[in-house]
Structures are given as structure tokens and as C-alpha cells.
């Protein structure tokens, strides 16, 4: 039974990582670089819940309403970043990475000025604060909710990418930007849409995180390094890679934590991922192309 509990702990950590990393995978594939301000888009999603609760007083309703609203809020924020700044930098990926880091600094400070430095408190609905008992297993409702949100988000994104014409365009741009442009795909518009969706998913993750932790200016930094590793180890723009790596890293982290404590577990996971990248330099799933670089 203890093993099952530990597995569930790993799965629930994996689900959080997946949700945090999902939007990142999309933007990584599209601009070839990690968006270091992704954590602050998550933060924007969490503050959306806080603001919404001032209007919608029912905790349950406000949380459900917050999911789409946060998607739009963070999506628009990401869109603004893309249109004002990042689109000028697509040919310089490493500079994009640094610029997004500068943005994250500024956004954190902006949150501190807008909402104040202290953490904000949101009410969680009663049906999400308890636990579901299955035999001797205690499954926290909030964790199950996050797992469900993650599953829906991955499912929705997969369908959108494979079954819609927009999805096909996104995949075309990710795989070969020049060829896509030559085929008449308006790459600039596809870029904007991709960035909007990727950022929006960060907002959804932010809503979910309000159930687990603090809502404050630096909340975006707590899961973000793990999420970067999920994306890098999963492979550029590959959703299945992120899914597998999120659960592998989550599981590894949880199981190690039971054995050696949180600090050492974290170090071991980081080292393991670094070694993994040695083995698969382009991540778990790579796009097979004939290009050399």
C-alpha cells in the first residue's frame, strides 16, 4: 500500500510538472528557445483567480470560471510579449532566452507593485480541500483535479494539433519554418497564435497551482527549473516527450524523496536529467530531419 501511495505522489507531482511545462513545449518548438518568463505567465493565471474571487464569491464557481479567463489573460500577456518584442528576435534564439528572463524580472516587480509583496490568499472550494479515500489510499481532491486538468489540457492540445488546420500549420512551422512560409502559410500569424495558446496554458497551470501553494510575485519560480528540464529532456515541440518526461521526473523525484530527503532528491534528479541529455542530446523524441544542425 505504501508503494501505491508513493506512486500516486509521483503521479501528482508529474501532473503539476506537465501542466507547467505544456505551454512551454509549444513555445519552445516554435521559437526554438525556452521562455524564461513562463513562470510569470503562470503567476498571472494565479492572480486571475485572486481577482475573480472579488467578483465571483463562490469559491467553486470562481475556480471553474478562472480556467478559461486565466487562459485568455495569460494568453494576451504572452501575445503582447510576442508582438512587441520577441518576434524581432526569432533569428537570435539565445538572445530571446535572455530577453524573456529580463521580462520575468520586470513582471515579478510589476506584480509586487500591483498586488503588494505579501502572498495573496484565495478560497478553495470545499469539494477540493478534502481527500478521496480509496481503500487505504488517500487521494487529495486537489491533486485529482490537477491531474484531470492536465489530462484535458494534453488531450485538447493533441486534438488541436493533429485534427485542425491551425494545428497542422503550427506543426509545419515548428518542423520547417522556411518551407512552411514557401507553402503559403502565414508564419507570423501562426507564431502569434502558437504563443497565445502556449501562454494561455501557463495561465491554466497558474489556476491549478493556487490549490497547492502560495499566490505571490515569486510563485512562478518554484516549479520552473523542473519544467525547463521536462521540456529539454522531452524534445523540441514534442508533446508526447513532455508527457513522458514530466511523469518520469515527477516519479523519480517523489520516490527519491522518500528515500533520501527532498534536497538530495532534487540534486539527484537534476544530475540524472543532465546525464539523460548526454544520452539523447535532442531530447527523448526528436524530429528526424535531414538537416545537419
Amino acid at each position: 500500500m505504501a508503494v501505491l501511495t508513493q506512486l500516486f505522489t509521483g503521479i501528482s507531482f508529474g501532473a503539476v510538472l506537465l501542466l507547467v511545462a505544456l505551454g512551454l513545449v509549444l513555445t519552445f518548438g516554435q521559437m526554438n528557445v525556452i521562455n524564461m518568463a513562463h513562470g510569470e505567465l503562470i503567476m498571472a493565471g494565479a492572480y486571475t483567480v485572486y481577482m475573480l474571487q472579488k467578483v465571483v464569491t463562490s469559491a467553486g464557481a470562481s475556480l471553474l470560471v478562472a480556467l478559461p479567463v486565466a487562459f485568455v489573460v495569460s494568453g494576451l500577456l504572452g501575445l503582447a510579449m510576442e508582438m512587441l518584442l520577441l518576434r524581432r528576435l526569432y533569428h537570435r534564439p539565445l538572445d530571446t532566452l535572455l530577453v524573456t528572463w529580463g521580462l520575468s524580472l520586470v513582471l515579478q516587480q510589476a506584480a509586487r507593485d500591483l498586488f503588494g509583496a505579501p502572498n495573496k490568499q484565495t478560497a478553495a472550494p470545499e469539494w477540493l480541500t478534502g481527500a478521496v479515500e480509496v481503500g487505504a489510499l488517500t487521494l487529495p481532491a486537489s491533486r485529482l483535479f490537477i491531474l484531470a486538468v492536465a489530462v484535458v489540457a494534453v488531450g485538447g492540445l493533441s486534438v488541436a494539433l493533429t485534427a485542425t488546420s491551425l494545428g497542422r500549420r503550427i506543426r509545419a512551422v515548428v518542423q520547417n519554418r522556411n518551407l512552411a512560409a514557401t507553402s503559403g502559410i502565414p508564419t507570423a500569424r501562426v507564431d502569434r497564435t502558437t504563443f497565445f495558446i502556449g501562454s494561455g496554458l501557463a495561465g491554466v497551470a497558474g489556476v491549478a497551482l493556487t490549490l497547492l501553494g502560495a499566490i505571490g510575485p515569486s510563485m512562478g519560480t518554484s516549479y520552473i527549473v523542473d519544467a525547463f528540464l521536462v521540456v529539454v529532456a522531452g524534445g523540441v515541440g514534442r508533446i508526447q516527450g513532455a508527457v513522458v518526461m514530466a511523469f518520469v521526473i515527477g516519479m523519480l523525484n517523489a520516490l527519491l524523496e522518500y528515500q533520501v530527503g527532498a534536497s538530495v532528491a532534487k540534486v539527484l534528479v537534476f544530475v540524472a536529467v543532465v546525464l539523460f541529455i548526454q544520452w539523447r542530446p535532442q531530447g527523448l523524441f526528436t524530429l528526424r530531419t535531414r538537416s545537419l544542425a
Binding site: F28, I34, P93, L94, L97, F228, L229, Q282
Partner: peptide, 9 residues
């Protein structure tokens, strides 16, 4: 970016 993230970790 792979190298950058790895060095950060």
C-alpha cells in the same frame, strides 16, 4: 538553449 538550461540546472 539545451546547454543553457543544463548549465542552469
Amino acid at each position: 538553449p539545451y546547454f543553457a538550461i543544463l548549465s542552469q540546472a
